[in-house]
Amino acid sequence: MTSSFAATIAPVLPLSAGVPRPLRLGLRLAGQFLLLVALSYAGTALVQATGVPLPGNLVGMLLLLVLLRLGMVRLEHVEEAAGLLLTHLNLFFIPLAVGLMAWGGLLGASGLGLGVSLAGSAAVCLAVAGLAGQRLARTAGASDAA
């Protein structure tokens, strides 16, 4: 079970000792990255096939969670590439934020209203989630366990 299909995709193969270390790390990262890409496409395909109103990449994430849980994918098959991508999460948001310049007209017309709505609703969320979480964490004793 533990060495099923993921082991054939992710190159945790015993590469020859002659391969230099940086290259080995690069190959390992590339293999792990390909596994993440494959799961992302699998999630999208699953959504298209079933018509479930969920984002494909979210389904891909749930898929990986299930595979890890079942032991079909092991942490070392994805951990390094996942860590690298998540450390630099902000990089992938920058191009989306640049998209703001395409909305100059809208932001000029209702920028203040949008700003107040975003800030106000974020504050509501922080207060509601924080206070509910705090009350329940104390009753459940989760704060001591964590």
Binding site: L36, V37, G56, M61, L64, L68, A82, L85, L86
Partner: peptide, 17 residues
């Protein structure tokens, strides 16, 4: 760059797991 958001989202499963 936005293409990477697919695998990046899948990667979120790792810290959760």
């Amino acid at each position: 760059l936005a293409w990477f958001l697919g695998p990046v989202t899948v990667a979120l499963a790792v810290p959760v797991y």
